[in-house]
Amino acid sequence: MNLQNKSLSAKIGKTLIYVIIIFLGLVTLLPLLNIVAISLSSSGAVTANAVGIIPVNFTLEPYKMLVDDPQFWRSFGISVQRVFLSLGLNMILIIFMAYPLSKRKSEFKGRSIYMNLLIFAMLFNGGMIPTYLVVRNLGLLNTIWSLVLPSAVPVFSVILMMNFFRGVPKALEEAAIIDGATPMQVLLRVYLPISIPSLATVALFSIVGSWNDFFSGLIYMTRTTNYPLMTYIQSLTVDIQQMIQQGINSTNLSELMGVSDRNLNAAKIVVSSIPLILIYPLLQKYFITGIVVGSVKE
């Protein structure tokens, strides 16, 4: 095999790799573009399945109508509120659980009891009905807390954070202790500042988890008006009359014909995904580090 031949085959190989990678990127992207295109196409085109990745008979009507759907925005608000409450509570509990647990047994008496409690909770659960009974008996049904408190301790994130804390050089902590820092100060001033990637990772998990969960809403909320966004979208039904009523406020009938349940639902899906699509690139640079470092313990 001469040199030229070899470099030719290497070139072909290289090109092939680029083709495959671009192909995989497109395969991931196109279905998402398809739903965006559907949300921007007229109902006729959508029903005929004529929409690919470019809108057919471009229309903004579904979005105009969505603006007028009070329940969508109410649910949107509930989801936003839930994400913030969950995020706050999760982060506090994760940090304050992971830090003591990252200590050695000799440094923290009782560690193994807590650790076992934590691990067993991750592996085993009481199931849907008993959990429902607890939430109900605590009087949490139909409150935002029913969506927040049952998942207050994300065990996997605690373990991930704990593994990360363990990787922090001991010398840093010892130096702080010699300077007279309390454990609280050590945590806040030494550990947290260098744990940004892992913190960002578990924060992302928390946000994604609480934004995407639809099942708790289905169980713990007894009326549609209290549904978080994903539960609302999951239970969408053909509600033309409501559509029409809203539609008449904002538009005339011929424009209305451009909307059907399919492009309207697509619009709801697109809008509901926007918050995550905005947050995710912000945290992307962190979570790669966070996942790699925290996922396993040496």
Partner: peptide, 23 residues
């Protein structure tokens, strides 16, 4: 006061949950 309001499968689920709690 409506303790729960739903229709179709959602209503059946709410009834099932209420029965499970005995309340």
């Amino acid at each position: 006061v409506n303790d729960f309001e739903a229709n179709g499968e959602d209503y059946d689920r709410q009834v099932a949950l209420a029965i499970s709690s005995g309340e």
